[in-house]
Simulated scan of single mutants.
Amino acid sequence: MSLDPRLTPANARVAATELKGQVEVPTYTDGELTQCSSAFGDIMGRPEGRRTAQLLYGDLFNVLERRKGFAFGQSVHDGYCGYVSEDLLDRPHDPTHWVAVPSTHLYPGANMKLMNTGTLYLGSEVQVMEEEGSWSRLSNGGFVPTMHLLPLGTRMDDPVAVADLFFGSPYLWGGSTRHGIDCSGLVQTAYRACGQDCPRDSDMQEAQIGTEIDHDRAERGDLLFWKGHVAIVSKPGMMIHANAHHMSVSYEPISEAIARIEASGGGRVTSARRP
């Protein structure tokens, strides 16, 4: 049986306990649950390698091995595996809210005139300790505007509207934030904000999400797939996607995108799916 390394919590030295009998390594472990304590943390296929995905602040990461400044493990929310810099991980908190705007600043106090000390991005899960007027004090000691947060159980209901919040964001391979995002990161972020589970990469999304439909009948919220690419239909005939052609999140007529992608060697639409 061939295991997808992106979703298999194992390297040459260690593996998750549940993989006993499936992979042969010297050590098996249940791991150590941590959380991303930075605005975002790159997940890499190997230490100091290329970014393949990102954790957001508050995302849980089960660490199987710590070695030479890197932690190998698995993201809890989507199962993605890889290496993260150890200094970006900390003990988990109990989240109460999530960031529901493209980005928000962290401040050392409940005053917008103070120098900001950091940034949080849409989807980040935070623990609110108390509210002071229109501000929320978080467990990390920082303050954010309360109007930028939603309770953990409250989700948005329109993935296209969420994707629109990223319009103009720069394209970034493996990215998942307003700072930089790729095609499948945009889809995952949009559907996750609406409370829908979504795998990280476009091939996984094509294999697992919804039911296949005729792409000529695609409606708002449907997904269009090419080999290695995905877009969200914003309305009949129009789509929004993070793409390397524009190097940003952009809107594009579906017919023009289909012709452009095929002409550039990207192939034809492989499927359309309705979540």
Score class of each variant (00 low, 15 high):
187 V>Q: 01
180 G>N: 01
234 S>A: 10
183 C>I: 02
223 L>Y: 00
137 R>G: 10
213 I>L: 05
118 G>M: 09
180 G>D: 01
201 D>F: 03
173 W>L: 00
212 E>C: 06
208 Q>D: 15
155 R>C: 13
138 L>V: 09
216 D>L: 13
158 D>V: 08
189 T>G: 06
178 R>H: 10
157 D>S: 14
184 S>N: 04
222 D>T: 04
116 N>Q: 14
191 Y>T: 00
188 Q>N: 00
155 R>F: 14
170 P>R: 02
180 G>W: 03
231 A>W: 03
123 G>W: 01
140 N>E: 04
173 W>A: 09
122 L>R: 02
148 H>P: 08
210 G>Q: 06
202 S>A: 12
157 D>P: 13
150 L>T: 10
119 T>W: 05
136 S>N: 06
216 D>W: 15
189 T>K: 03
122 L>C: 07
189 T>V: 13
148 H>A: 09
164 D>H: 14
215 H>W: 15
211 T>E: 15
190 A>H: 08
185 G>P: 02
199 P>I: 07
203 D>Y: 12
217 R>C: 12
127 Q>I: 02
228 G>M: 10
147 M>R: 07
201 D>M: 05
204 M>W: 15
150 L>R: 12
127 Q>D: 14
142 G>Q: 05
136 S>P: 05
115 M>D: 12
178 R>C: 03
156 M>Q: 14
177 T>N: 08
225 F>N: 05
156 M>S: 12
232 I>E: 00
212 E>Y: 13
180 G>E: 02
156 M>R: 15
209 I>S: 11
116 N>Y: 13
235 K>E: 14
178 R>M: 08
173 W>Q: 00
185 G>M: 08
218 A>E: 06
136 S>D: 06
180 G>C: 08
218 A>N: 08
191 Y>S: 02
215 H>M: 13
165 L>N: 06
137 R>A: 09
221 G>Q: 01
198 C>V: 09
226 W>E: 08
157 D>W: 13
184 S>G: 09
194 C>F: 11
171 Y>L: 06
209 I>K: 07
187 V>L: 08
207 A>L: 12
176 S>I: 02
170 P>S: 10
200 R>V: 04
131 E>K: 15
148 H>D: 12
208 Q>V: 15
117 T>W: 09
177 T>E: 02
138 L>E: 04
232 I>P: 02
218 A>Y: 08
143 F>E: 01
224 L>P: 04
149 L>A: 07
178 R>E: 01
212 E>S: 10
